[in-house]
Structures are given as C-alpha cells and as structure tokens.
C-alpha cells in the first residue's frame, strides 16, 4: 500500500481497507474515523456526503488498483479493457464501487473519464473521415461497453466471469465497428 500523503488520501486508503470486509454502505463515518485515527468531523469536512466519499474513493481505487493501460489502436484498446475486466474480477468489491460511482449524480468529478478521451483520440486516428454524429455514436457505445458498469451488469445479472465478459465485450465492439463504412480500419 502506498504511503498516504494527506488526510483526504488517508481516509480513502482506510475506506479501501474496510471495503475488503464490508460493503460501502456499511462503512460508517464513525468506523472510518476510528480506522484513520481522526475525528468524524474531519471526514465530514473532506467528504460532506457519502456521494462525495464514493466518488473520491472510486477515483482513488481507479488510479491505484485499476490503472488503464494506454492505448492508441483498436487492438490495444481491446487488450486494455480485457486487462481491466480481469483486474475487476480479482477485486470485485473495488470494481463495484467504481460502477456505482459512475452511476450517481455527479459531485466532484464532472470531467469525462480519461478512457473517454482516449477512445475519442483513437477514433480520430483510426477513422478520421467519420462524420461527427457517427463518431460520437461509436465513441459513446465503445465507452459504455468498456465500463465498470458493463462488467458489473454481466457479473451480477448474467453470472459471467472475466473471460466471458471479455468475450461479450469483443462481440459488442465488433458490432459497433461493423457500422463504420471502411472495414479495413478495424484491424488498425
């Protein structure tokens, strides 16, 4: 575990530790304060609501546990997403926090996620002639199929493991890319 550098990060690191034994909903500010060794008031000052805590915790987990491998080509994009889905399977409690945080009403983080920008950049290179609307449709679809939400839905709703989820993801990506006029680009 990395050395916590400030109070805000120390709170998140402790929340992540507690997440190994209980659900996010069962982590009270009281228990969290005891774990960090600070007052409950200090936690409220950093994270005024549980939604703030959830969003910050998800960002921190994403950076420390599920860093997204960089990608430029479609093949690298697939590989990067596969790697993440497999990582999610090894730490499901952390991955569900990410899925939940991406579904709540935005609190702190209103910027699009890094992966969104990376997908858009990938399409700029791979399909530069694509019209604006189709480009956005493709980007949004790829983004949504590569999300923690997709992993969470397939794991909980379909009882699939990472291998099957990667397979379903690949097939979904295939269907989206097939809509693009120039078939050669998909192999880029």
């Amino acid at each position: 575990m990395d050395e916590p550098v400030d109070t805000a990060t120390a709170i998140l690191a402790s929340a992540a530790v507690l997440l190994r034994e209980r659900m996010f909903d069962d982590i009270s500010y009281r228990a969290l304060a005891d774990e960090v060794g600070i007052s409950e008031r200090t936690i409220y000052r950093q994270y005024p609501t549980r939604a703030h805590l959830l969003a910050a915790l998800s960002n921190w987990i994403e950076q420390t546990r599920f860093p997204l491998p960089p990608f430029v080509t479609v093949a690298d994009f697939r590989a990067a997403v596969h790697e993440r889905f497999r990582a999610f399977d090894t730490l499901p409690a952390y991955a569900y926090v990410g899925a939940r945080a991406s579904a709540i009403s935005p609190t702190i983080d209103t910027e699009p996620a890094y992966i969104t920008r990376a997908i858009e950049a990938m399409l700029d290179v791979a399909a530069p002639a694509l019209n604006r609307r189709d480009r956005r449709r493709v980007a949004a679809s790829l983004r949504y199929f590569s999300s923690a939400m997709f992993w969470a839905r397939l794991r909980t709703g379909f009882d699939l493991d990472a291998g099957d989820i990667c397979d379903a993801f690949d097939r979904a990506v295939d269907t989206v890319l097939a809509k693009i006029p120039d078939p050669a680009w998909a192999e880029a």
Binding site: S102, A103, P106, A139, A140, R143, Y144, F145, M149, R153
Partner: peptide
C-alpha cells in the same frame, strides 16, 4: 440489456455531454 438501462443515459450524458 446493458443499453436498455438508466446506466446508458447516465454515461452518455456525463461522459459526452
């Protein structure tokens, strides 16, 4: 079933405005 969910609305709105 993934597309037919509130998650789609949230993601498309949040990530792509």
């Amino acid at each position: 079933s993934h597309l037919d969910s509130a998650g789609t609305w949230v993601t498309f709105r949040r990530e792509f405005g």
